[in-house]
Design a protein around this nucleic acid. Structure first.
Lengths: 249, 249
DNA sequence: CAATATTTTGCAATAATTTGCAAGAAAAAT
DNA sequence: ATTTTTCTTGCAAATTATTGCAAAATATTG
C-alpha cells in the first residue's frame, strides 16, 4: 500500500461521497489517523480537496471558497488561487502585481481575511471591495491600459518603501534555465523592486507560461521560493523546476 | 457531522425556503442553537446569507454598486460634464480627485482627446480605458473603499511632484462664507495638495452640496477660480458666490 | 550486498478549535 | 414601564490538530 494508492482511494471516495473523514479512512486503509491526516494535507495543498476539521471535502461544495463553480474540481486560475490561499493566510503584508491570475487569487480571499496588500494593480481594489479587513496600498505611477497596472520609476520608488512577507508574482514567463522574464521592461522593473523587498516570493504561472522566455529578464530561478501552477504538482513538465530545488505547488 | 455539513444543510434549506431559523436548524442538525448561530454568523460574514433576527435570509440582490449609483442621477452630472469640457480641452495636464461627478466628467471626454490626468481616483482608469491619447498618472497611497480614492501622506507627497494647468475638484461642500470643506480629513489634505500645485481650480458641485459645510476645511472661496454646478448659471442660489467674485458656470 | 541516507509512520505531548452553557445586554412585545 | 424574547460574550470541557521525535520502512550509494 503506497502513498499514491491511498491518494487514489481517498479521491475516489471523495468523488462518490463528497466528503471523507480521517477516522473512516484510517480503518479502510489500515493506517493511523495521522497518516491519513498528512495525506489529506498534501492533497489539500495541491488543490484536489479542501481540508476541513475531521477530514476533507470536494472544493466545489466548500461554500466559503468557490461556491459558484460548476465543475467538480477546480481548474486553471481558480486552482492556482486555491493552492495559494494557505500561504496568503499566513502572511500579514503581501505584494501583488498584475495579471488576471492575481485577480483570481484576490477574488478567492475569504471575505473576513485580515491582510495588507500593496499593489500596482489598479483592478485589484474593485475585486476586494467587500473585504473590509483588507488594507490596500496602491502604488502610484504611469497607468498602463493593457495591464491595468502602474509602472515606472515612481512605482518602483514607492515599492521600495515597504517590506512584505510575501510577493505574489503574476504575469511572467518562467524557464528553468533563464529564470523569470517579463514582456515589457517597465513591468519587469517593478517586479524586481517587489522581489527585493519581500521575504518570500511565489510565482503564479498558468501552464502556457511554463518554459516561456520573454524579452526582459527579471531574476534567476533561485530568486523564487515557490512556483504555483494549474498543473498537478507532480506533472512532468515541472520536473526541471523541481530539480532546481524550487517548491512546486 | 462537521461544520461544513451543517453549512451545506443551511444553505440548501435557505435556497428552498428563502429563510432559516436558528431553532429549527438546531433540531434538524442536532446541535445547540448557539452553534447554529455561530454557523450563520460565519456564512453571513462570507456573504452567503444575511443574518437577521432569529436566523438568516437569502442575500438581497447586490447592493447598489458605485457605478450604478453614478448612473442613477445622470442629468445633473452630465450637465456639469458638458460645461467643463471647454476648460478641459484647453488644458494639457489636469488634476482630478474623487467623486461621481468627476467620473461623469471623465466619461464625457472625447475619445481622441490628448491629455495628461493626474489622479488619486482609482475608478478613473476604468472610465478612460478607451482614451488612448490620455495619459493617466495614478497617485499611490492608502486605498479608501468608500470613495475609491487613495489618500494619506504618500498621496499628497506625490501630488506635490506635479504642476497642473487645471484642478477639477469634486466631492466637496462649498459655502460662500466658509469656503470649501471636505467630509474626511484625508480627502481634504489631498485637495489642498492639488490646490497648491495647480494654476487654475474648478470646483464641480451638484446642487445639494451648495451651501453645505463639512467637517474639514480645505480652503477659502478665493482659492477657487470657477464653480460649475448643475443649476443654470444665473440661479439665485449662486448669487452669494457670484458676489464673491467667483466665475459661475 | 552492506552501509548509509531519506522518507514514512505512529505515538505522545502540546496547542487550537469547537461546543454548550450561563449571565448580562439589547431588542421586541405587552 | 415591564415582561419576554433574542443576542452577545465569556468560559470551561470536550474534541480535534499540530508538532517533535524515534522506530520502521524504503531508497540510494559505493
Amino acid at each position: 500500500m503506497t502513498k499514491e494508492d491511498r491518494f487514489e482511494h481517498i479521491l475516489t471516495k471523495l468523488s462518490v461521497n463528497q466528503r471523507v473523514h480521517f477516522e473512516e479512512l484510517a480503518v479502510e486503509l489500515n493506517v493511523s489517523e495521522d497518516t491519513i491526516r498528512r495525506d489529506i494535507d498534501i492533497l489539500g495543498k495541491n488543490g484536489l480537496l479542501v481540508k476541513v476539521r475531521r477530514g476533507g471535502i470536494i472544493p466545489a461544495i466548500n461554500p466559503l471558497s468557490f461556491q459558484e463553480r460548476a465543475s467538480l474540481f477546480p481548474e486553471g486560475k481558480e486552482r492556482i488561487a486555491f493552492k495559494v490561499q494557505p500561504h496568503l493566510s499566513e502572511a500579514k503584508t503581501v505584494f501583488m502585481d498584475g495579471g488576471t491570475t492575481i485577480l483570481a487569487i484576490a477574488a478567492a480571499i475569504p471575505i473576513n481575511a485580515e491582510l495588507r496588500i500593496i499593489t500596482n494593480n489598479m483592478a485589484l481594489p474593485a475585486v476586494l471591495h467587500e473585504h473590509e479587513q483588507v488594507e490596500i496600498i496602491s502604488l502610484g505611477g504611469n497607468y498602463n491600459r493593457n495591464t491595468r497596472t502602474t509602472t515606472g520609476a515612481q512605482t518602483c520608488l514607492e515599492a521600495c518603501k515597504y517590506v512584505a512577507d510575501l510577493y505574489l508574482m503574476g504575469a511572467c514567463g518562467i524557464d528553468h534555465a533563464l529564470g523569470v522574464t517579463a514582456q515589457v521592461a517597465e513591468d519587469g522593473e517593478v517586479k524586481r523592486a517587489f522581489l527585493a523587498s519581500s521575504r518570500k516570493t511565489i510565482a503564479v504561472v498558468t501552464q502556457e507560461k511554463i518554459g516561456r522566455i520573454d524579452f526582459f529578464k527579471v531574476a534567476n530561478l533561485d530568486a523564487i521560493d515557490t512556483i504555483v501552477t494549474d498543473l498537478p504538482s507532480d506533472d512532468f513538465r515541472l520536473n526541471a523546476y523541481r530539480f532546481a530545488g524550487r517548491e512546486i505547488l
